[in-house]
Nucleic acid binder design. Sequence first.
RNA 1: GCCUGAGUGGCGGAAUUGGUAGACGCACAGGACUUAAAAUCCUGCGAGAAUCAACCCUCGUGCCGGUUCAAGUCCGGCCUUAGGCACCA
Length: 803
Amino acid sequence: MENINEIEKKWQNYWDSNKTFKCENGGDKQPYYILVEFPYPSGSGLHVGHVRSYTAQDAIARMMRMQGYNVLYPMGWDAFGAPAEQYAIKNHIHPKDAVKENIRTFKGQMKSLGFSFDWDREFSTTDPDYYKWTQWQFLQFYKHGMAYKDTIPVNWCPTCKSVLSNEDAAGGVCERCGSQVEQKEKSQWMLRMSDYSEDLLKGLDDTNFADRVKLGQINWIGKSTGVEVDVDIVGGGKFSIFTTCPETIYGITFFVIAPDGKLIKELMDRVENKDEVNAYIKETSLKSSMDRTELNKGKTGVEVKGIKAINPVNGREVPIFLGDFVLGDYGTGAVMAVPSHDQRDFEYAKEHNLEIIQVIDCGDISEHAIEKQDYMGHGYKMINSEEFDGMTVDEAREKIADMLEEKKLGKRVNNYKMRDWIFSRQRFWGEPIPMINCPDCGWVPMNEEDLPLVLPDVAEYEPTEDGESPLANITDWVNCKCPKCGHDAKRETDTMPNWAGSSWYFLRFMDPHNDHEFASMDAMKYWNRVDWYNGGMEHTARHLLYARFWVQFLYNIGLVPNKEMIWTRVSHGMVLGSDNQKMSKSKGNVINPDDIVKEFGADTLRVYEMFMGDYQMDAPWSTDSLRGCKRFLDKVERLINKVNDKAGFTEDLESIQNKTIMKIEYDMTHMGYNTVISALMILANTYDELESITKDDYHLLLTLLNPIAPHITEELNERLGYKPICEGEWPKYDEEKTIETTKEIAVQVNGKVRATIKISIDDEEDTIKEKAMECENVIKHIEGKEIVKVIVIKGKIVNIVVK
RNA sequence: GCCUGAGUGGCGGAAUUGGUAGACGCACAGGACUUAAAAUCCUGCGAGAAUCAACCCUCGUGCCGGUUCAAGUCCGGCCUUAGGCACCA
């Protein structure tokens, strides 16, 4: 098509000025909420990867609107975060100005691709009107005892004087300056997310997330069931351990406690080798910021001399060790060690010359431990376990746990890997945490009516000398009055993490202009929830978990209608460079969507990205393949020359037309976008074989292609003299016409295809059998052999088994 | 180490509940049209044996084994690869 860019612009303007895709809350139509993850508007512009998922969701949105749904397909900006802050520090401009510019670019690119977003609902997480409510929700967390301050170690670069994220501190060195990263204790806001472990797990049953997404969530929550056992210390005192293998408790030959835990601090007075122990504690704290895989070739640790623990089930006195493989913040910070049945304990025992007692008669353990997955479920018997000797492992497991509970030595408990959410960032470019520290009253929440607490306009964004947020330097802003007693007080200068704004944005889209609540209950009840949420695989664990936690909390305090506000969640594959590598500037394999739109048109790019492969998997870029999609659109355009004056549909085409409608509907809703295109190509090829087609034939093809290639189809449809496709209806198929009356099926002899026969759908089994037997090549293969049986699967296949 | 995907022509990929493997597209080759090129159209295109030719035959979905009349698809055991988690008791 000539002037493709002008034609695309024409239709983009049409949609804009007619507000074609604006949707209202309410009405007779059934609501349907389609969501794509809103992007971080980076300086490098829209990525072809964005185009893939936005086009896919756009196609569904466009189809469903034509099908009569009230579709909400919104877009916004997740614009807080470190890159904008770094950029601002470097160039001495306010990050909000950089963000504004980037948003302008992104929005222009999105418009040039013809996405049918309802732009009237657009917002950025950095808008005070939006983050006012993020802050308000934080106050609700605080008021319900869900937010608290705790001192935890952070990664600290002594050269940059800056707190680093785990990513920036990878390998134990600062990513920017290469200095050795240290650990520094800092008081941080935390959200009690671990309280929601079980609810977040159970809630998955009320969602329709893809299995791999659910699994990601389940793994992240990391539930394990076991027994917590009290252990007495010789000469007084006790601690507890958590184990998932109570059946091995008689095999304990030592205990290991965390060097960063509280227990060792309590015991320190009685430790005989204090110097050694303290040195090890120090060593561990340095190590914790490092990439542990590198360092952890051996099992390090020291014995805590002078203190012995008592195995609660048999009274044996065993040594206690300090080992850095035990984590202070998981379980109880102490473990029982059974080297015979745990490989890690085994290695540790070998390293430190400790005793090994086998308690399950499952084979030779002189070379390595025999672990749970190998001893459970095989009927192995217990040994060296007093009254449990001779029982099967599976039986003893329950009986030992029962005994521990009866004797009040322990109890069955669940443990979760998921920790509380560290909610403080020592950054400028984030939502300020609306808390005030008063010398008399302590931490006091801001009054809700004083929100938003707006970020100040200043010129410098460098962090302070001691790693506080840059906000700490802005005394005008920091100094304030205590809302409770009115005395001088100081604001919290930490800001919220990037995850905060994205934890509830999908609720705001339901009611984006509400200025007295974050979204009205009516609006949320109308949309009910996000019906279909698409995003990257990298966000299926954390972002989704944070968002679900946030929603569940809001539900529990009565502010949202459902405990789960997201129904279906799917994730798309990446668009890789043509070298099959992730696109990156350094590799020089980046494709800029603007260039493609300019040269080939937005529709070609959209069609290609839908056609390039399985939507849920990574796919490499191919400009040759893109050209093929351009050729397809050219062919569709040429077909207009075949349009005749006849009314209605061409009779010979009815079967394929109905089948194509059916297939496209199915494939679109099952993410089979590539086969949608292929079905359309087949339909176009079929049209092309005919001398002429009717207007309706052509209009049908344009309508079916419209969700993926909206510009060119509208243009051609207009030339046909029809009203715009986006204002029309999606075609309905006639199920009867999709059923073929005659079919070609294969005839096999001993499972090998030897012929094909034409059958009619109402042919009886005997008729089909007869037809099969008449085939020349079939006769050749069954001649002189005994027919054992003939399998006839109606409408599918005939298989003749001979001997 | 653990978890999760993936492995099908020269390439991207189809095959919806086990039922004609390779749809659709790309690349390539030959031909038509053209003064020529582009565009377009036609033909071929998994490997192999054989043949004037067509039919036809053998093998073939990472590897080994199994279930079945029938396996890319189901089961058991491996290998390779991508991503996630990583001393989680």
